[in-house]
Amino acid sequence: MDWTVIAEYMPLFREAAFLTVRLGLTGIAIAIAVGIACAVVLYYRIPVLKTLVSFYIELSRNTPLLVQLFFIYYGLPKIGISTNPVFCGISGLAFLGGSYMCEAFRSGLEAIPPIQSESAESLGMSRLQVMRYVIFPQALSISVPALMANVIFLMKETSIFSAVSIMDLMFTAKDLIGLYYRTTESLFLLVVFYLIILLPISILGSLLERRLRYAGFGA
């Protein structure tokens, strides 16, 4: 392994890492919002919307991200919606992640016994207040482990972005290997940078979990 090559590649990988994190976190944030909205629809069994959400979840979970990206990247322009790689990456990740996040939140919501809403309702709270102050905070803490697993999973899925020419870490590594045949150095940097991104998320996840366990939420 040639360390001078590594030093030379470093700035390229750093740029790519920033892009990966930026697109990944944006996509994940939207996925969480989509997931919460869908989970609430399923929890209250809202007619019509409930069917749409179920259809979306099956579609999203049973097709590969690569296919979803191709659909957005090549398909949408054909029906007159112009896209660019960044939009494509973020929306693809949000489309995939939304269903996983929905399932995580839904299991949290359904773990809360009905007596919790009933006692909150009997105190005169509106449905919205019951959800906001009583059900949601408890459901969220129950969902944290699944939620963090999804964040890590989605962050890793960003490696597919290279297929729609987003210059993320994977793209950079493949590019450099193709140009200079510096396979070892490129792959080494690829692994290191993914670890730099993902390890803190993992550690944050276990800290959160432990804190919530000590707080004894949902118990």
């Binding site: 007596i115 009933e118 005169g124 949902g218």
Partner: peptide, 24 residues
Amino acid sequence: FQSYDLFPHLTVLDNITLAPQKVQ
């Protein structure tokens, strides 16, 4: 109610003062 229905994520004080603050 028969079963314990306090809100487990809130302290005793917050359990009691939630509805007066938000509802009333």
